[in-house]
Design a protein around this nucleic acid. Structure first.
Lengths: 336, 336
DNA sequence: CTGTTAGCGCGTTCAT
DNA sequence: ATGAACGCGCTAACAG
């Protein structure tokens, strides 16, 4: 509560009996300063508990040590892990992340964009809530921009997305390795690219093994209710099914409910696998869910790295896919 | 990608053929500037798409227009809605929020604290992941600090917490209004203050109605697995139960599973209510969950308001409780 | 090695 | 109504 004036470098310099410039060098660990002098300055700084004014530092150096994270997912399900990954990669001491949530609103996004630019962020990470291409926020902005999760529609931009096709491949390979052959798929929302990418990986891998997805083949939503209904339909139409791939953990939760209601053993009779590895869902079910983790933190780390490269001027534009990670649990492997 | 030098006020002034000072006044809407001159300056600024450098502006003004949000919940479940509420209250155009996640790590928290102070944030909101008092981050910091969700252990600090006692009262009143009398409670983690506060509200309200909680009375964890086990125990020990209050949505999901397995109708035979209103869980179940929402956004708005007041110097320290909100759905009222 | 001089970009006096 | 000059706190270039 005691709102005392902040101590400045000048105060430190005076206390140490040196010039401001020398104090600056001493504290910034530059080598052209005497050992004894440095000690005195550091001692003074510590005694006064000096905190350098980042604003002034940045204004002088031309860099803000800040990157903007322009997010669009209302619940932070993607942006928080991506933020944490980015913090890790940047090294929290050097870079701070300014998080703005546009709440899926274009106006708000433009607005946040301009305040971030006004704050002279050194870079920008744009996080979307789905992997469908989204409009670019602009071509020649004064700072490097990296799109994470949702790629930019402009191929000149730098984008990083999870490899959903690869994710589809992984789950099928897992099921095949378990000896499953009669595999059905509960699709997600038809309007999502992720739904189609996962199907592409699934069907191509099945095809290579001479197999096909069991019917039915309809799309739905990402909800548990859809998972319940779709699982019902599968049991009716393809009663010999031995594995169900669910397009999301929510769907899988619904499917598990139906299987349980019908007395179908999981994983003995039917193995269940899904995507997202949303732990609150995946760990609570009976049995726990085998699921593909998109590794948002890694996405965030990579995005941060690309921002750095862009600052240095060495980035190739385009959309880059990051591999996902299969987390095996009891819904596909007994006791896992 | 074209990393052109940012345009400065000076560029605008030259383009408009005026001095920097005049340009500044014109753009900041001060009245001592000619109408025609102002027009020319504004036109030039627009043409060059001038964005004032917030750093420089802030360095001069001594205010950064930035508040720090020091969070500790790894998944952003609390901090994101609180952030959004704060953004709303501040008005996104005037204030930006710098989000730092300490990941429940004291060292990291100290570290983030110092970088936030170095950035000269105008205020600080500290968000914890549980309502138990947490150590104060320090008494005489150069900026106002408001604790949200997790109160500070120092009564001299300003804290805002959800009213968990009131939440307990609300659910009981709801159940009583539905005619339920044989009420059991599945407790959460015994180490959490929230678990005890909710019980306090529950038992006092029941007591006022001449009722008692049905056994068993043991604590557990916040998990679905505990919810399943505890519901089993309740049915065994108190088979005439007509309502179960679950300490969290996760617990409620587990309880619903058990009730379904046992063929107990919800809400006909047993009404189920819970706390958190975590929509991913509350909306996916059969039936959907009646749950108490802690209204984090309102918490964030209030925190922002308190920060403002503290800047102005008019805040009374202490812990303030915010009322929660009961969201009624099908698990307690048929068809709701 | 150290201190002096110049800015960084803007807002704000004060003359004019 | 306009502009020159100064300062915010710090870093960077140059002298000494």
């Amino acid at each position: 509560m005691s709102m005392a004036r902040a101590v400045t470098l000048r105060d430190v310099a005076e206390a140490a009996g040196v010039s401001v410039a020398t104090a600056s060098k001493a504290l910034n660990g530059r080598d052209d300063v005497g050992a004894e002098t440095r000690r005195r300055v550091e001692e003074a700084a510590a005694r006064l508990s000096f905190t350098p004014n980042a604003l002034a530092r940045n204004l002088a150096s031309g860099q803000t040590g800040t990157v903007g994270l322009l997010a669009s997912d209302l619940d932070g399900r993607f942006s928080i892990p991506i933020l944490m990954g980015a913090e890790d990669a940047f090294g929290a001491e050097r870079m701070s992340v300014l998080l703005c949530d546009a709440r899926e609103d274009v106006i708000r996004e433009r607005h946040h964009l301009s305040t971030l630019l006004a704050r002279r962020v050194d870079g920008l990470i744009v996080v979307g809530s789905r992997t469908d291409p989204r409009p670019s926020i602009g071509r020649d902005l004064p700072v490097p921009v990296v799109y994470a999760y949702a790629p930019s529609a402009d191929p000149q931009d730098v984008s990083i997305v999870p490899d959903n096709v690869g994710a589809g491949i992984m789950v099928v390979e897992h099921l095949l390795s378990l000896g499953r052959r009669r595999i059905a798929h509960i699709r997600g929302d038809v309007t999502y690219a992720a739904a189609h990418d996962r199907i592409a990986g699934i069907t191509s891998t099945l095809g290579a093994a001479g197999l096909d997805l069991l019917p039915p083949h309809s799309f739905g939503s990402w909800s548990e209710a859809w998972g319940r209904a779709a699982a019902d339909a599968i049991l009716a139409e393809s009663p010999d099914v031995d594995a169900i791939i669910c397009a999301s953990d929510q769907i899988a939760r619904g499917a598990l409910d139906t299987l349980r209601d019908r007395g179908v053993g999981v994983p003995d009779q039917v193995a269940v696998v899904s995507f997202d590895n949303w732990e609150i869902l995946a760990l609570g079910s009976r049995p726990q869910l085998t699921s593909v983790d998109m590794d948002f933190e890694a996405l965030g780390r990579l995005a941060a790295q690309r921002v750095f490269e862009s600052i240095a001027g060495t980035t190739t534009p385009g959309v880059e896919s990051r591999p996902c990670r299969l987390v095996i649990r009891g819904s596909s492997v007994k006791g896992a």
